[in-house]
């Protein structure tokens, strides 16, 4: 039989091996970066180089040195310690937001797929489209306008935005599975659609969800930083990367280190998560593996 994956590129150099190496390498780099920041956040729960609740005006706006590896800010606080504690806020907001998105989105997606083509499916998917019209920033603006600013805003706003993302990815994964004969076999065995969704569909879309979860996690960190930067997220004195950048903005010409390091922290965390997501996708995606025959 013809191999459906027959590639049309003749006499090509073999890059596939390199691709695999690259894929696993991106997974490795991603994992390391993610673990560094998750570790920093965890360590900051029990220890940080300096106490960031103490101001030390005499020591303010110092460039990186042996005592303060990443320098100090305009209140004389240690930036490395601030970044470590700030990682907690970012990671916590992003995790809860992904949790909200999955908790609501996955069941909705499973349900819509089980009733494909019905009114329910249509309503769920249209509602999803509608939520996409509200970027998380607009949701945060609306919440802040009515309830005032807080870190909870960021969580809710990002979480709501995550719901349709997970609903869509679950539904599309589930729809292809519903076409498979093993689902028909389960129906012949008298199983209902709810049971089939949990027993057969969900385990087979977990890979998709893990990959999407990593991506939404990284987007959540970016979004939280943005919201905190404009004052719609974490409020002082809660340290957050976005707030640190907002504070540094007016001093950027004479204290660029205050802007550089928190930004690098965001960049590297998001990069790490994205690389991990890509690596996992390559690992899970059968299309990239060698043909089964």
């Amino acid at each position: 039989m013809a191999d459906p994956r027959t590639n049309i590129r003749p006499k090509a150099v073999d890059w596939r091996l390199w691709r695999q190496v690259f894929a696993s390498r991106s997974l490795a780099i991603g994992l390391v970066l993610t673990l560094i920041f998750a570790g920093a956040a965890l360590i900051s729960l029990v220890w940080a180089p300096y106490d960031i609740t103490q101001m030390n005006i005499a020591n303010k706006i110092k460039p990186p040195s042996g005592a303060h590896w990443l320098g100090t800010d305009h209140f004389g606080r240690d930036i490395l310690s601030m970044i470590m504690v700030g990682a907690r806020t970012s990671i916590a907001v992003a995790i809860v937001a992904v949790g909200i998105g999955m908790a609501a989105g996955v069941p909705l997606g499973l349900w819509a797929a089980a009733r494909k083509g019905s009114l329910l499916d249509e309503v769920i998917m249209r509602a999803n489209d509608l939520v996409f019209a509200f970027p998380s920033l607009l949701i945060a603006i609306m919440i802040t306008a009515t309830f005032g600013p807080s870190a909870i805003n960021a969580i809710i706003a990002i979480g709501i935005f995550n719901i349709p993302v997970f609903a869509r990815i679950t539904r599309s994964g589930a729809l292809t599975l519903w076409q498979r004969d093993f689902i028909l076999a389960a129906r012949v065995a008298g199983k209902g659609s709810a049971r089939i969704s949990v027993e057969h569909i969900l385990p087979n879309v977990t890979n998709l969800l893990i990959v999407q979860g990593t991506i939404q996690f990284s987007l959540g960190i970016l979004a939280e930083a943005g919201l905190s930067y404009v004052g719609l997220g974490a409020q002082p004195p809660t340290p957050s990367w976005g707030r640190m950048l907002a504070d540094s903005q007016t001093m950027i010409s004479f204290a660029p280190h205050m802007a550089l390091f928190p930004g690098m922290a965001i960049l590297l965390t998001v990069l790490g998560l994205n690389l991990m997501g890509d690596g996992l996708r390559d690992l899970f995606d059968p299309k990239l593996r060698r043909g089964r025959t």
Binding site: L222, L245, S253, G263
Partner: peptide, 22 residues
């Protein structure tokens, strides 16, 4: 593009201000 996706745009904006404006 991997870096472009990960960079917070407002931070990138601040860096551009530092380099190209200041």
């Amino acid at each position: 593009t991997q870096i472009g996706v990960a960079i917070p745009n407002f931070w990138f904006a601040m860096l551009m201000v530092l380099v190209f404006a200041i």
